[in-house]
Structure formats: structure tokens, C-alpha cells
């Protein structure tokens, strides 16, 4: 499986995805300038912008790499040659997923380093009211990367179901948006304001809350930006949630993929 992960990584690098990220990352240079427009929170604004930019790049990566990885292999008939090797479909699927996830991790580390540099610079010029907590920032980026790895698993799940790339790409984007608000909807449902809703709608919404991935849980941007404390228990629970949810998605994907006919 290591070799299929390696092949996947090589493919992403040789498709010049990394160079693309580096070019996009040049925008980091603009962040201190934009952030200096803030009246009261220059460092906080540089953090906001850096973290948002990392999130955005990782989102694009996970949607497009995750959504097209399997589709491209099947479309270009790479699967008929690779699956003709003594390589089980599960291992192939996991290898492709692992390679893509690893790339997102690498991108997060590199972009994270750029963000550190930007924030360090901003905070040196305009010392913030509250010192930047670097470990929180690192954890925020790490959980951001985990969130997008979870999203890649969603994209892979759609790829095993569909033969085109529309469902993987657009389905993944929809799940991403929906998974970002489930927590809000859930909280609304539990508040007295939702009294007027019919119980059926409530039931469906609650069902979706448990079914859809909860991306909101991975968002620690506020903690990183304003130096709010993180709770270890919450982090561990989120980590466990990540492992279990990715496990479920990949298992179902593998089960579907094994049954798939490679015409």
C-alpha cells in the first residue's frame, strides 16, 4: 500500500499542484499589508486571513484531488492495469486516499509555516493586546487539515458511487456546506425558537445532524485568532470523531468499490 500512496503523491506533485499552491501562497505576502488596515487587531486580522487562506486552499485541494482521483483512474483506464496486479481493491482505495490525505497534510504544514511567518511579522510590528498562542494556532491548522481529510473521505465515497466527477465534486461541496451548519441547525432545534416547526421537520433535521459529518467541530479559528483556551477533552473527542467517521466512510466506500465492475 505504501507504493500506491507514493505513486499518488508523485502524481499530485508532478501535476504541478504543489507549484500551484506555492503561487497561491504568494498572497500570504499581502496579508500583513491588508491586516494593517485594522484599527484594533492587526495580528488578529493577519491570523484570520492566514487561517482562512489555508482553509480555502485545503478546501480546493480536497474537493478536486479527492473528487477526481478515482474518477480519473477509471476514466483513463488506469484501474484496469493497476487492479490487474495482485493489489486488492481495498488497498488500492486506501492507498489513493492515503496519498491524497498525505498531500493535504504536507500542504497544511507548508502553508502553516508561511502563516507562522506572517503572524510573527505582524505581531512584531503591531504587538497584539493578547499574545499569540502558537500551540493553539498549530492545533487549529492541524484540525483544519483533519477536517479536509475527512472531506476527502466524503469525496472518495461519492467517487465509488458515481461514474462521473460531477457527483464527487459537487456532492462534496454540498456536504461541506451542509456539514458546516448542522451544529447551528441542531442548536436552533433545541432552542425554544423552533417551537413552530413541525415535528417531522425536526426529526429529519436531527437525523441529518447525526448522519452528516460535523465540520463545525473542527473549527478552532476563533481560539487561534483571539487566543482563547482549547479544551483537551474536546480536542480528543474531535480526534476520535474524525477517526471513527473516516473509518465508516472508507469502509462503506471499499465495500461499494469491491462490487464495482471495471468495464
Amino acid at each position: 500500500m505504501a507504493s500506491i500512496i507514493l505513486i499518488t503523491l508523485k502524481g499530485i506533485f508532478r501535476d504541478r499542484v504543489f507549484q500551484g499552491i506555492m503561487v497561491t501562497a504568494l498572497a500570504f505576502l499581502l496579508i500583513p499589508v491588508i491586516a494593517s488596515l485594522s484599527m484594533r487587531q492587526v495580528t488578529e486580522l493577519s491570523l484570520t486571513l492566514s487561517l482562512s487562506m489555508i482553509s480555502f486552499i485545503l478546501l480546493l485541494l480536497s474537493v478536486f484531488l479527492g473528487g477526481t482521483s478515482l474518477w480519473k483512474d477509471i476514466e483513463r483506464r488506469y484501474t484496469s492495469s493497476v487492479l490487474g496486479l495482485p493489489l486488492s481493491r481495498q488497498r488500492y482505495l486506501l492507498g489513493r486516499f492515503g496519498g491524497t490525505a498525505l498531500f493535504v497534510m504536507i500542504a497544511a504544514v507548508v502553508l502553516g509555516a508561511a502563516a507562522f511567518a506572517v503572524v510573527l511579522y505582524s505581531s512584531a510590528i503591531y504587538p497584539p493586546e493578547r499574545p499569540v498562542i502558537w500551540s493553539t494556532m498549530g492545533l487549529c491548522i492541524l484540525f483544519d487539515a483533519l477536517k479536509y481529510i475527512l472531506l476527502i473521505a466524503v469525496a472518495f465515497f461519492f467517487s465509488t458511487v458515481s461514474t462521473s466527477f460531477f457527483l464527487p465534486v459537487f456532492g462534496t461541496i454540498s456536504i461541506f456546506l451542509a456539514g458546516g451548519v448542522t451544529q447551528q441547525v441542531y442548536e436552533y432545534l433545541r432552542s425554544p425558537a423552533s417551537k413552530s416547526l413541525s415535528p417531522v421537520v425536526k426529526q429529519i433535521a436531527a437525523g441529518l445532524y447525526y448522519l452528516l459529518p460535523n465540520f463545525g467541530a473542527f473549527d478552532f479559528k476563533v481560539n487561534a485568532i483571539y487566543g482563547l483556551p482549547l479544551h483537551v477533552e474536546g480536542l480528543l473527542l474531535t480526534l476520535a470523531y474524525f477517526v471513527v467517521y473516516v473509518g465508516i466512510l472508507l469502509s462503506i466506500s471499499a465495500a461499494i468499490f469491491i462490487r464495482r465492475e471495471m468495464r
Binding site: 507504493s3 505513486i7 495482485p86 493489489l87
Partner: peptide
């Protein structure tokens, strides 16, 4: 498939790899 050498019809291989790299990949699978 461990004892089989398989050539698919109109084969296509990861086109970003060189022939040698691909052969090495296949060898590792065996």
C-alpha cells in the same frame, strides 16, 4: 493474480511516471 502477467486491451498507465518507475511499482506489488 500473483502468478499472472496481465496486459490489458489498449493499456494505459499512470502517465506521469516513466516506464522504469512504473515497472518498479509493478515489481513492488509482486
Amino acid at each position: 493474480r500473483r502468478s499472472v502477467g496481465y496486459l490489458p486491451e489498449n493499456p494505459a498507465f499512470y502517465d506521469y511516471l516513466g516506464a522504469e518507475e512504473y515497472i518498479a511499482f509493478v515489481g513492488s506489488q509482486f
